[in-house]
Design a protein around this nucleic acid. Structure first.
Lengths: 152, 152
DNA sequence: CCTAAACAGTTTAGCACTACACCAAATTCA
DNA sequence: TGAATTTGGTGTAGTGCTAAACTGTTTAGG
């Protein structure tokens, strides 16, 4: 009675779910998320934290809310995230020059090094996934299409 | 001093983030999620709940964990979800025939009607988004590609 | 049979994200 | 200048998802 159980385990019918871009997006994103975690969890970095680091590295001096707006997050979510990244000595808050309310975010020297090894791992993971696509054209097409679906 | 502020608001440089499929997926999915909420929040249905309903509607009698596995969720997340859907008189738990541990999930007659109007709204929203793609071929290609990126 | 392992559902705790209210600082405008 | 509005950072629910432990049930193996 090994594989002849009465639990026939017939495949589930996904119905219209199968044709919904939103649902397929969710599944794909879940897969990327878990793969990312496997690759970077030992470094204590989640996809969200990585995005923040990437933005600050390329745009030093941005305020917390500027980073949040760029990433489409809520400002309040930045507090705990930046707290954590500061504790990890990856970036630091400095008082903004002409606005006593806001902080400007900068990478630490240790954070710059950290970002390099982090980027290597992420790009590695990225290329493994991109290898499933057919050629460079398809990757570009996918990025363009996802961008189209991201706005408005 | 309307739009000539010293806050030049120069566009943020996303660096390698721009070329990461994972990041673009996240943005696109966030957009779909918020649009879905706009369309269905008055009905009290989130994307996750909709997926559960869609599965049960096409596969009556599945157990909670079977639905969870199909959707890639954790079993424990089903408890509150099914509780809610039962309270909304959309589906119901019935004791499984040969297993006193598990419940079988079925749509209520009111739930079937509800699912119809719900599906209409979702498909409407879906077609608005799909209209951004160029032709039916691109939609099929996108669904296939996302599926490729969802597994393993 | 009877014990050990696996399993369905549940509970709980932890984590990330969202939305809303709050305070201090800055900006606007009269 | 001074009052009203806006803005940056923060705190606080409330929600969704994940992982682990627990209960009752079923299955497997001696």
């Amino acid at each position: 009675m090994a594989d002849d159980t009465k639990k026939t385990d017939q495949p589930v019918d996904f119905g219209l779910l199968n044709n919904l871009v939103g649902y397929r997006l969710r599944r794909a994103q879940m897969n990327f998320f878990s793969k990312f975690s496997e690759v970077c969890s030992d470094l204590g970095i989640s996809p969200g934290l990585f995005a923040i680091i990437a933005i600050v590295e390329r745009n030093p001096g941005l305020t917390q809310t500027a980073v949040a707006q760029a990433l489409g997050n809520d400002r309040s979510a930045m507090v705990a995230a930046v707290d954590k990244l500061e504790k990890m000595d990856i970036l630091e808050r400095r008082p903004a020059i002409n606005d006593r309310r806001s902080y400007a975010l900068f990478m630490t020297t240790q954070g710059e090094k950290f970002f390099l090894t982090l980027s290597e791992r992420v790009m590695e993971h990225e290329q493994i996934m991109a290898a499933r696509l057919e050629g460079e054209n398809e990757l570009e097409w996918l990025l363009k299409t996802l961008d189209t679906l991201s706005h408005g």
